[in-house]
Every structure is written in structure tokens, then in C-alpha cells.
Design a protein around this nucleic acid. Structure first.
Lengths: 334, 334
DNA sequence: TTGAAAGCGCTAACAC
DNA sequence: GTGTTAGCGCTTTCAA
């Protein structure tokens, strides 16, 4: 007999319906019977078939989490940490995370098939198709990160506010001329960082398109020409590239540049002395995204949420000072 | 009407059974009817309810992929790349990847509930419970990476062979005294690397327990005392830590060390001149793991597979020479 | 080749 | 409080 519910019913001399009530906790049932059922199940290591439950209850207890499957992908830790945050959060409520490609086809398939109850898009795929599809699909979903499309529930760090606070804090400690190096102009996160920086340090030069070591060094040299000696890096990879290029003396004219990074990372942490950086918590973002769809599944109205960050600023002795906060929260998820 | 199969049947004036046959491709059906059904579905953007299919066919079309949810996790890219490899491979055959915590409870839950048809364990959790449970659970599963437990189907790089080949290649080009720095002694991958290195460079000193910059520098100094001037690093983080420590002159006695890494990474790629390294392909491992369980689901007998690697060795001009191969394959998955 | 009907393992009314 | 029964949306005999 493959139906565990029938097996328990038979063994305990009760009906399948009663066993079901013990499991779901719904409907009236004597505390004693319920305990008998649960004990029996625990003792015999039995659990109900999830798929049958799903079909009957019209819920899949599964949430899709998109990840880019593009092989030359950057920001691995952002995606994995976020997913792990979501997994942990989902597990508490009995949900699971189905990891899928962020391609429109993959998203449409799992949604169309009813394989998931909600979708977390871990970053705008920029295909002009996925997000609109989700909007009209009528199931809960949230986007992690920024987007140009309006009317979408989002979970994100406030990159702009973080960069503003960080830039301000650094410029209070260091004197000199500030400049910023960023990656692709199309990247929405970079744009937000640019705005935060420019608000804190108006009229400071910004160099774009630092995509590899060569272009990063070129950007730095450009800034140096303009008299910059405090370089803010839009990303940790830019920062690492710059640091090693400097140490190897590959930046001309040779000059002592002070570095600060808009994004912390393990690679950066390995450097000594410590480079000041903003510490984002992708895991918290993933967890918040999961909470957001869970709430929508519970009937609540969708709300954006903004996740806090930390400023990691080393003092002279190499010790760390940590500060910073999400001062601009619409709603801060616990 | 929530049943798409009934809707199509009604619209086309045929029975639900026929529609089902068109979808599954099983059973006798006229090519014309089949086309009519498929066309209608495509035109109206309809797809069958996966959960009902699953219940009826007793298959979940889902494969669990475990990831450590331990917050202070290392090797993010290994886990994410592997998962992405699995997602891509699974998608082709209509399967999906359910990402779950590698805790015994999580694994038991999804397996017990019948929520997945197979399990990929992305690294031995070392809990002495999960793997044995899976062995007796009777559903297909594979382990990525080494384990002390026997009789388990595995997919992995041949770390030992790779390190042997790499060490040999480096020592043919560079003259000097070699030494190796490794992380935790409990780590099975590190142990395999140790063996490969020692086979290629017998009697060379090996320093263990390089877990952060301090211990790494200490390990390096230890080796220097022994006359080592070619340092092999068991991991890219060790390599980066050493590189920056050297550049900052934090290793005593100050000496010119040449570095080589048993594991390549983006952080390492950013360095210039290039540090020779072994390039592993976690994505291929994940894909192979997925293929492995898929084959078992297809009734084939489980087989271990070993995935190839590349040696990345820079010449004087900074150009790259790539070589290396999986010379010890039991079976190399495409 | 197609239709009808009996499940798949569970939930949820509805009676008792 | 518990048993009975009718689905959930699909697959799969078994007839026709």
C-alpha cells in the first residue's frame, strides 16, 4: 500500500479523513487521536505524499528562484547567498526553493505548469519579457534589485543611500580629491551608486566602463590626471584590480592612491591594510524576498523592502570600525 | 474549468484521454489528432498541470541539489556553478532542480515526502547521517566530491592527478625548492591535493592549517625557513593572501617567492603577472552529477565520473598557455 | 485510433 | 469528533 494515510488509518483503526485532519491540523479532531496519529507517523518515520497534498490543496509549496545561467556570470556570491537566505526562510514555513534559469522560457514553464506558487527574480534579466509576463500571470512575485519597469514589488539594498553615507564618511576622514570608477553604464546598480556618490561629492569625476584590469587602470589614470587621489571603486573586482595594479606599479604617473570600495567581498577582506567598504547582506535580501512572496501568498498586500548595510572602515591600527544603517527603509524586514 | 486537458478536449470535440495521449506521446494516437491538440495548446498558451501529472505518473520530475546553508560558507562559486550546470542539464529533460539545505532533516523531508526523484549532494556534509540515509532510501543519488564512506556514486575532479600533473609541469619550468601550503587537515580535497603534490615532489615540505592571512603567512615563513622558494597554494584564497602579504612586505625573511595555485579563481585571474593554476570546471561537475542521476532514473547502473581540468600556466610575456586533461577518467561525461 | 472509467494519495465538505 | 464521499487534473488500462 503506497498511501501512507491509508496505512496509518488501518493500523490505528480510524478513517483516512481523520488521519488527514491530524496531519493538516484543520477541522475538528480530538487531541488524543491527533497525538496517536502523529506519534505513529513519527515512530514509523512516515510522511504524507507531498504531491498528492499539493494536487488536492492546489498549492505546490514551492517558490521559484531565478539565477542567470549565463556561464560568464559575475557576482556569484550575491546569487548563492541570496538563494540560501531564501531557502532558510522558506523551509520554516514548509516551502521549498526551485532554482531555475532566468530565461523567459524557464520562468513561463514552471509558472504555466503550476509547479510553483510564487517567483523570486534575483535580478532584472533585462529581457523586457519576464517581468511583464509575471505581472500579468497573477501569482506573487518579487524582484531583487532595481528595474526600469514600474509597478513591481522589489527588495533591495538602498545602494544610493549607502554610497552617499559611505562617501561622506570617508571624505570626513581623508582629505584629498575624490573620484569614482564604475563598470558598465547600463547597469542599474552602478547608476544608483553614481548618484549616491555624486550627491556626497558633487563635481567629482566619475570614470565608467572599468570591465577588466586594463580598462580599470585606464580609468584610474584618467582620474589621476584630474588630480584625484582618493579612488572609490564601484565594485570589489575593480578594487582588487586597482590594488594589485598599484602594487605592481602599473599605474602612471606613479602616485599614492587611497582606495575605498562600494562593495565588500572576501577577496577584499584578504587585503591588508583593510580597504574601507560597504558591506551588503545578500542573504538577508534573499530572505526578505522570500518573506515578501510568502506574505503575498498569505493574502497580504505586496510591499517593497529595503535591506540595511554596514560601513566597514578600518582605522590606522588596522582595527575595524563598523557602522551604517538602512536609514531610508520603507520597511525593513527582520 | 481549471483542467486544461478538459478544456482542450471540449474545444476539439475529443476525449480527455486522447488529449493526454497527445501530450505524453504514449499510446496510439493519429498523427493528425496529436498535431491538432499540440497546435491548439501552443496557440492558446496552455500547458498541463505538472502536479497532477506527477501524482498520476508517480514522478516529481524534480531533483534535489543540496547546498550548505552555513552562513560562513566558502567556495561560493563552486556551489553556484555546479548548481547552474545541473539546472541546465536538468531542463533539457524536463526536470527541475530543488535547492535544499544539506542538513539531514531537509534531505529526509523532501525525500520522505516524495517531492524529488533523485538527490545530488554537492559535497559530503560530513554528518555521518545524510549519505547513509540516502543509501538505504533507494532513490538515485550522487555525491559531488570525495567521501570516506564507501559504495557511493561520485562525480568529481581528480584532484590528486591534477595536482600531480600541475606540480610536475611547474617544476619542469622553474628551478628551486618546492613547498605546499594547505588549509584544514580534515578536508578531503586538501588531502587529495597533498597526495598529488607529494607524488610529484617527494620530500617537499607541506604546511597545513592556513585558514586566514595570519596563519597563511606563518605557514609561508615556515617553508621559507626550510629553503623553499616555490610555493604551491592549496587554494586560491591562500594564494591571494600570500600574494598581497608579499607585496606589502609582510613575510620575513623578505625573499622572492614564486607562487602557483592548485585552484584557479577570478580573484587570481585579476593578478598580474598571472599565477599558474589549475582550472577546474564546477559547472561541468554539476552537469555530470545531474546526468548521472538522470541515467539512474532511466534504469541505468550508477557509474562514477571524473571531470577534466586545465592547467593555466603563464609564460614570460604574460601570455597564457593552457594544457592539462583528465588523464585518469573512469568515465568522462560530455 | 479513440472514449470511458478507474485510479494516483490526499483534502474538504457533508453527514452522522 | 469521526466516517464517508466527492473531487484535485492527470495517466492508463480496457473496451469499442
Amino acid at each position: 500500500m503506497s498511501s501512507m494515510i491509508a496505512e496509518v488509518a488501518l493500523a490505528l483503526g480510524i478513517s483516512k479523513g481523520t488521519v488527514s485532519r491530524a496531519i493538516t491540523g484543520k477541522g475538528r479532531i480530538a487531541a488524543a487521536t491527533k497525538a496517536r496519529v502523529l506519534d505513529y507517523m513519527a515512530e514509523h518515520d512516515l510522511s504524507p505524499n507531498a504531491i498528492a497534498q499539493n494536487l488536492s490543496s492546489r498549492k505546490s509549496m514551492t517558490i521559484a528562484y531565478t539565477v542567470p545561467t549565463d556561464p560568464k556570470m559575475r557576482h556569484l556570491s550575491f546569487y548563492l547567498s541570496g538563494m540560501i537566505g531564501a531557502i532558510d526562510r522558506a523551509m520554516i514555513t514548509g516551502y521549498d526553493i526551485l532554482s531555475i534559469s532566468n530565461s523567459p522560457d524557464a520562468v513561463r514553464r514552471v509558472v504555466g505548469q503550476g509547479k510553483v506558487d510564487a517567483v523570486i527574480v534575483s535580478r532584472d534579466p533585462g529581457d523586457e519579457v519576464t517581468l511583464p509576463y509575471l505581472q500579468q500571470a497573477g501569482l506573487p512575485f518579487v524582484l531583487i534589485g532595481p528595474t526600469r519597469i514600474s509597478g513591481i514589488t522589489r527588495v533591495d539594498h538602498d545602494h544610493q543611500a549607502a554610497c552617499l553615507e559611505f562617501t561622506t564618511a570617508i571624505l570626513q576622514r581623508w582629505t584629498g580629491k575624490a573620484g569614482l570608477i564604475l563598470g558598465s553604464r547600463d547597469d542599474l546598480v552602478s547608476q544608483a551608486r553614481d548618484e549616491g556618490f555624486t550627491a556626497a561629492a558633487p563635481d567629482s569625476p566619475v570614470a565608467w566602463n572599468a570591465l577588466d584590469e586594463t580598462s580599470t587602470v585606464a580609468a584610474a589614470e584618467q582620474l589621476v590626471e584630474l588630480g584625484v587621489d582618493i579612488v572609490f571603486c564601484g565594485d570589489d573586482s575593480i578594487c582588487v584590480a586597482l590594488e594589485t595594479a598599484m602594487m605592481a606599479g602599473r599605474i602612471h604617473p606613479a602616485i599614492e592612491l587611497r582606495l575605498a570600495s562600494f562593495h565588500n567581498s572576501p577577496a577584499l577582506e584578504a587585503l591588508n591594510p583593510r580597504i574601507p567598504a560597504i558591506q551588503f547582506d545578500s542573504s538577508a535580501v534573499g530572505a526578505a524576498a522570500c518573506s515578501a512572496v510568502l506574505k503575498q501568498l498569505g493574502g497580504e498586500h505586496p510591499v517593497d523592502s529595503i535591506i540595511g548595510y554596514q560601513l566597514v572602515i578600518g582605522d590606522r591600527d588596522g582595527h575595524l570600525a563598523r557602522g551604517g544603517q538602512a536609514t531610508y527603509s520603507i520597511s525593513v524586514d527582520q
